[in-house]
Design a protein around this nucleic acid. Structure first.
Length: 421
RNA sequence: GGAGGGGUGGCAGAGCGGUUGAAUGCGCUUGUCUUGAAAACAAGUAUGUCCGUAAGGGCAUCGCAGGUUCGAAUCCUGUCCCCUCCGCCA
């Protein structure tokens, strides 16, 4: 959520920032609503102050109220209720206007309304040739991926990993978690995957993106589309004590996405599926640190690509392509020699104070100081099926076997997936 | 699923419907004392919001939502969560 205070203070600045994203925010309406909100608050507070004063006087004097007082206070009470109802309506409308507004992009974010304007800011050394053996052909032949079984169990865009394929994914995830916890200082978290509507609201997934989320009607719980949702909520409604920030969390969880918007795209293989594993990094930091931390997290994710021997590139997303809650995002893509394309394996964003405000997560900079909103950052480190694809396709040998990256061998216990007989 | 108990400030823990935003203790901050520290003593110590340049003042909040009342932390209804016991179960 954007700061109402900031919108009121500098409406044109906020409007301009949102226009960069292709939004047309109802700024005038918000300003109107805020004005009447303030008026109504003043009215109702004055009446309540009057009522409190009379009641207190009666109490202090240990006497019965007079008939006159009773009728006046009844009248005041009625008026309070009426104005409260008005105020409630205004607050609700204001919320409904504010909640669908996305975060404002940082000035560093390139202009542009779609992915064509994203800037490639770095491409690693390494091969970018194609051998044409895509994972959807190679992996089933090796007996490590069963797309038909996924479809028959659950439907399109579900898959089954088998044998060394399943273990490779587990090994990759375990290794990534170890790198982030042991070398990057993250605390490992195993969060719930079903979350309450308030939690989805806090991360920015609701109310706008409900059509992409799985939901259980009976319990009104939502399946997380990323661990970010749960990690972001770890301190909701809480004040983080002085000296505690920065907080660094990492979790490996499944992510559940309906992918309605992407119907027809990436339908072959496991590039885009309804359920996938992902290692997610998440940080709560002091505002002045967030821009530097974004770069740091980018490094933590690219390290993973490098150590797996994958060719990758880094994109700085343009204003129109960053996520709803993001103020600035880097995407990391790895080269798939099988399908001759770049696969997005990580998205690293700063959400500035946008999520903290929605979640009512605050921190106290020092003892006795007033509370402030921390900045939140999230980044995949990395998404597993696409990393798995790249590892398989990159490790593919002329004899049909697949060589596993050296770093992963201690986790798999073997260094090669044998060619199919 | 059945039966009972409970949700109050950072924590513990009081609170006859009326000077209770809330006793008391602990913790924390500052000050006095001390070479320094401890102890002791004194003062302070919730969050949000509105008005105000500020000083300051108003309002709201005792899980949450309603209701009764001139007045609700205290009474009533609903709801969520936690604990204990029984049942069931990975």
């Amino acid at each position: 959520m954007l700061s109402l205070e900031q919108i009121v203070r500098d409406p044109e600045k906020i409007r301009a920032a949102l226009v960069r994203r292709g939004e047309d925010p109802p700024i005038e309406r918000i300003l109107e609503l805020d004005t009447s909100r303030r008026e109504l608050i003043q009215q109702v507070d004055a009446d309540r102050a009057r009522r409190n004063a009379v009641s207190k006087a009666i109490g202090d004097e240990k006497r019965k109220p007079t008939a006159e007082e009773i009728s006046e206070m009844r009248e005041t009470g009625e008026r309070i209720k009426l104005v409260e109802a008005d105020l409630d309506g205004v607050q609700t409308e204001l919320n409904e206007a504010l909640l669908p507004l996305p975060n404002t992009p940082l000035s560093d974010v390139p202009d542009g309304l779609n992915e064509d304007s994203n800037e490639i800011i770095h491409t690693s050394d390494g091969p970018t040739e194609s051998h044409g053996n895509a994972h959807w052909d190679v992996a089933p032949a090796l007996g490590i991926l069963d797309l038909e079984a996924g479809a028959s169990i659950s439907g399109a865009r579900f898959f089954v990993l088998k044998g060394k394929g399943a273990k490779l994914q587990r090994a990759l995830a375990a290794w990534m978690l170890d790198v982030h916890t042991n070398e990057h200082g993250y605390t490992e978290i195993d969060p719930p995957l079903l979350v309450r509507p308030e939690t989805m609201l806090g991360s920015g997934n609701l109310p706008k993106f409900r059509e992409n989320l799985y939901h259980d009607d009976e319990t009104d719980l939502w399946l997380v589309p990323t661990a970010e949702v749960a990690l972001n909520a770890l301190h909701q409604g809480k004040i983080i004590d002085p000296g505690v920030l920065p907080l660094k969390y990492v979790a490996q969880t499944p992510s559940f996405r309906k992918e309605h918007a992407a119907a027809g795209r990436d339908v072959r293989g496991i590039k885009r599926v309804h359920q996938f594993e992902k290692v997610e990094m998440f940080r709560f930091v002091e505002p002045q640190d967030s821009e530097a931390v974004l770069e740091e997290m980018l490094g933590e994710a690219t390290t993973i690509c490098e150590r797996l021997g994958l060719t990758y590139r880094v994109l700085k997303l343009c204003a129109g392509d960053i996520g709803f809650q993001s103020a600035m995002t880097y995407d990391i893509e790895v080269w798939s020699p099988g399908s001759a394309e770049w696969l997005e394996v990580s998205s690293i964003s700063t959400c500035t104070d946008f999520q903290a405000r929605r979640n009512n997560t605050r921190y106290r900079p020092e003892i006795g100081a007033s509370t402030r909103l921390p900045h939140t950052l999230n980044g995949s480190g990395l998404a597993l099926p696409r990393t798995w694809i790249a590892v398989i396709e990159n490790g593919l040998q002329d004899d049909g076997s697949v060589v596993i990256p050296e770093e992963i061998v201690p986790y798999t216990g073997w260094d090669r997936i044998e060619a199919a007989p």
